[in-house]
Amino acid sequence: MKILVTGTAGFIGFSLANVLIERGDEVVGLDSINDYYSVDLKYDRLKEAGIPTQKIQENVLTQSEKHPNYRFVKMQLENRESLFNLFAQEKFDKVCNLAAQAGVRYSLSNPYAYIDSNIVGFINILEACRHHHIQHLAYASSSSVYGLNQEMPFSTHKSVDHPISLYAATKKSNEMMAHTYSHLFSLPTTGLRFFTVYGPWGRPDMALFLFTRAILENQPIDVFNHGDMIRDFTFIDDIVEGVKRVIDSPPTHNPLWDAKKADSSTSSAPYKIYNIGNNRPVKLMDFILEIEKNLGKEAQKNFLPLQEGDVPATCASVEDLQKDLGYQPSTTIAVGVRKFIDWYIRYYGVKL
Rank of each mutant, 00 (worst) to 15 (best):
Y37I: 07
L108K: 00
V243K: 05
S159N: 07
L126S: 08
D286A: 11
E175N: 11
Y114A: 06
T53C: 08
T266Y: 07
K66I: 04
L208P: 03
T8S: 04
I239P: 14
I236N: 12
G277A: 12
V350K: 15
L83M: 10
Q54L: 11
D228R: 11
T331H: 04
S107M: 03
Q54W: 09
S159E: 07
L41C: 12
D228P: 00
A169Y: 03
N225F: 01
A207F: 12
M75D: 08
L304Q: 14
D228L: 10
T252Y: 09
Y146T: 02
V246F: 09
S265F: 06
V240Q: 10
V197C: 10
T190G: 04
L30N: 12
D44R: 02
L126T: 07
N34T: 07
A259P: 15
H179V: 04
K293T: 06
E175V: 06
N85W: 11
S186R: 04
R280E: 11
H136E: 01
M75L: 15
R213S: 05
F92G: 02
P111A: 11
E90H: 11
G227R: 01
K74E: 13
F122R: 15
A207M: 08
H162D: 15
S173P: 00
E308T: 09
D31P: 05
T331C: 02
N278C: 14
K339V: 13
G29P: 04
L284T: 09
E298G: 07
D31F: 06
Y139P: 04
R45S: 03
N118A: 00
L216V: 00
N59L: 07
R80M: 08
M229R: 03
Q54C: 01
Y347V: 08
A17M: 03
N218Y: 01
H67Y: 13
W257M: 14
A138W: 03
S109E: 15
I247G: 04
S32D: 13
L16F: 15
R338Q: 12
D40C: 06
S173V: 03
P329V: 00
P68F: 01
R338P: 09
E241T: 05
E241S: 02
L325P: 07
E298F: 06
M176A: 10
E90A: 05
I115T: 02
V197R: 01
R280S: 07
K158Y: 13
P52A: 05
K66W: 10
H157M: 14
Q135L: 09
R231A: 06
A334R: 13
S107C: 02
T196S: 14
Q307T: 12
I345H: 09
M206T: 15
P281D: 03
L126I: 05
A17W: 05
D116W: 12
G202Q: 00
K272N: 09
N34R: 04
R23F: 00
R71V: 11
S38H: 08
S38V: 09
S330Y: 14
K244V: 14
L166A: 08
F185M: 06
T314L: 10
V337S: 01
S267L: 03
R213D: 08
Y347E: 15
L20M: 03
S186F: 00
G121Y: 06
K244G: 12
W343R: 04
Y106P: 05
I288M: 11
R338T: 07
E319H: 15
V73C: 06
R193A: 01
T266R: 08
S143M: 13
G277L: 12
S186W: 00
I236Q: 02
K171E: 06
N302R: 12
N225Q: 09
Y198L: 02
